[in-house]
Design a protein around this nucleic acid. Structure first.
Lengths: 226, 226
DNA sequence: GTCTATACATAGATAGAC
DNA sequence: GTCTATCTATGTATAGAC
């Protein structure tokens, strides 16, 4: 699988995401026409992610968001009841998509070596396709309210668990070495995150997403393969 | 070298750091008595790092900082001329210390394998000894003004260059495999950063700093050693 | 040198016209 | 549904007393 193939397989339509957000947040969204909601949620989220790729969510004012999204400050509050709720909304949805796509891809194989490759590639490709979204989810997690922070941590650990399980499977089948599984999963995750946390660096150096994915697989297999 | 030995060798005294900051910022610091400055800079920086381990620098108000440091809002402005300047001051000093200690340690050996081990251990141990400081430097870099952001990026690339040079040395001496040097250095750096970005995770799992350093060395050598 | 009091700007959020 | 106008809170930064 290459990045281009991945993009064709995994349809992440903005309309669909927006629809899911509407389902989850019926209470806070005051606008009744669903089409309007879908359309404007896309504009709001796109604007937020764009602004927050340059400055922090805290530093983004409602007036900034108004200017970038094309909706007035007053209108924005028809789609969320506080700025913090907007943060929670985007983060929750981001985690949901990431987890769903990843799990969907991994179940496609039962061979541990293949599963590990798929998991690494899917994660990197997904974080490339939704770079701003991933960056935002990571970097703004600390500004979430306490209980939402807990959910973010759980989600992080769940993703790691996915790798832990794959590696354990490989050790049982004697295709992987008996390494410290938790640490191997941790460093794989660190490498995956580097792709979207330091995208500026890899772009400047003309490292393609396929190059990077192949390299991370190479590293993982250097540690694990017998 | 273990973490405890490292701490004995590398003296990172708060007074010394504070003194260097004074040298660099004579213009902004209005208080004349040097002892006072040293003492209060320590209190201000400790307070800032403590608060910012829980919330962002933007979210920290001068009133917060006043309460935590024990100085009034007015007094704080005798030590910096704006909140942004305080951010720059801490970040600049943090990068300076990190770079100095790392370079000092690495020159102790001329053997590439040994150099790589020293570099990895020094970085992880240093980031452990100054965990809040490293976390702050990483996470708040994006809130720096444009020109200071450039310096932060340069510093990041310089640290990576140190690893690149070591690896290239090893390849020349035919003790390391002829891998993609830039990518190897990148992922080593990603692993190093994970230690202080996810310190909560490693603490919960009772992974000691020595365990982690040894594991990162193990990974690096799995990729590189012939 | 440090405090209290306060000026001034900007933020989030709401009300009511359209 | 969206706008403009505005309320209120909070933040940074300063002035002047001690």
């Amino acid at each position: 699988m290459t990045y281009n193939e991945f993009k064709k397989i995994v349809k992440i339509s903005k309309e669909e995401i927006s629809g899911q957000i509407l389902e989850r947040n019926r209470d806070s969204i005051k606008v009744k026409k669903e089409e309007k909601v879908i359309e404007n949620l896309i504009r709001i989220i796109d604007a937020t992610l764009k602004i927050c790729s340059k400055k922090s969510f805290q530093a983004m004012s409602i007036r900034d968001l108004s200017a970038e999204s094309g909706l007035s400050g007053g209108a924005l509050y028809s789609y969320f009841s506080s700025k913090e709720e907007l943060l929670v909304l985007i983060q929750t949805q981001g985690r949901e998509i990431a987890n769903r796509v990843l799990v969907d891809q991994v179940v496609k194989s039962s061979d541990p070596v293949e599963k590990l490759r798929i998991a690494i590639k899917s994660h990197i490709y997904l974080s490339e396709a939704m770079r701003n979204w991933f960056y935002f989810t990571y970097i703004e997690a600390r500004n979430l309210p306490k209980n939402e922070q807990k959910l973010a941590i759980e989600s992080e650990l769940q993703t790691e668990k996915l790798f832990i399980d794959i590696i354990n499977g490989g050790i049982e089948e004697k295709v992987f070495r008996d390494e410290n599984v938790v640490l191997v999963a941790s460093v794989i995750k660190a490498m995956l995150q580097d792709w979207y946390l330091k995208s500026w660096k890899y772009r400047n150096r003309k490292v393609s997403v396929d190059d990077y994915a192949d390299f991370v697989i190479h590293v993982a297999e250097s540690i694990l393969l017998i």
